[in-house]
Design a binder for these strands. Structure first.
Length: 262
DNA sequence: TGTGATGTTGAATG
DNA sequence: GCATTCAACATCAC
């Protein structure tokens, strides 16, 4: 699911159904997503606690709690949540279940188990210690330019680096590069600043647009938005054919119109 | 049956 | 110190 717009969608959906409800218990079905935190510690934190608010920076989500510490969730590749009736079977791929005093239970689902689900003392401290950079939608243009200015190498690699800008991932980077006609293999040291400004502008616009429209991330990845990600594909307007390559270890799609700097 | 998948991290290499 | 590549994580779906 998860790049910035999808995590934001997760945040909104989560906030709409999980806040201000006292938790009766947390049930750990698979402790992989606890990343070494003892299930009992999660249980102790959540039992009798109430989630009060949500935060997000990049792909990192937090639910603040009445008691102080926050629940951190990173969706990895396939994280999501679902509500279900308490006396029914938990959804497929449920890894942790939050059971409330009343009402539907919440299952954190994650087929591949690359996600994270555990308490942290303070989100900001956690993110800063981890070196997570500013959110792609919060960052100002000047800061965006400054952060990329001191960097060499492949554009896409830098954009994937969450310590520079947090929130973009493989798909949205390709999408914005397509929009701006900047080839993702361009080298930063050869990319004119004006192009980076363009990238910044389009990034803001596309992410905002995604937040406004794509409010249900559960339709991702079969969404028509990504249908062009196929070698040889031609757009209805004739652009193409799409090439498939590997950049920074990730499958990347481009069209011939994209300009490669460096 | 093999292949690839929206993410992150650490090790090895240049 | 930087950048790059690769493997690992664990599993599903085509």
């Amino acid at each position: 699911m998860p790049e910035l717009p999808e995590v934001e969608s997760f945040r909104r959906r989560f906030a709409a159904v999980a806040l201000q409800r006292e938790i009766r218990e947390a049930e750990v079905l698979d402790n992989t997503v606890l990343r070494g935190v003892p299930p009992q510690a999660l249980q102790d934190f959540l039992q009798g606690n109430t989630l009060t608010d949500t935060r997000r920076r990049g792909k990192y989500f937090f639910a603040l709690s009445h008691r102080g510490p926050a629940l951190h969730i990173h969706l990895g590749m396939t994280g999501d949540f679902r509500l279900f009736e308490p006396d029914t079977e938990a959804p497929r791929f449920a890894r942790v279940i939050l059971r409330f005093l009343s009402g539907p239970s919440l299952a954190y689902t994650d087929p591949r188990k690359f996600g994270h689900f555990y308490p942290v003392e303070d989100p900001e401290t956690f993110l800063d210690r981890r070196g997570v950079g500013p959110d792609a939608l919060q960052i100002r243009e000047a800061d965006f330019l400054a952060r990329l200015a001191g960097r060499r190498g492949i554009l896409k690699a830098a954009l994937l680096d969450q310590s520079l800008i947090a929130g973009l991932g493989n798909l949205w980077i390709d999408e914005i590069c397509l929009d701006t006609l900047i080839h993702p293999a361009s080298r930063l040291e050869h990319l004119p600043e004006e192009r980076l400004r363009t990238f910044y502008r389009v990034m803001q616009r596309r992410l905002e647009q995604a937040l406004a429209e794509n409010n249900d991330a559960r339709t991702y990845p079969t969404d028509s938005l990504w249908s062009w990600r196929e070698a040889g594909y031609r757009f209805p307007d004739g652009r193409g054919p799409v090439s498939r390559l590997t950049l920074a270890g990730r499958t990347t799609y481009t069209i011939p119109d994209q300009v490669r700097f460096g």
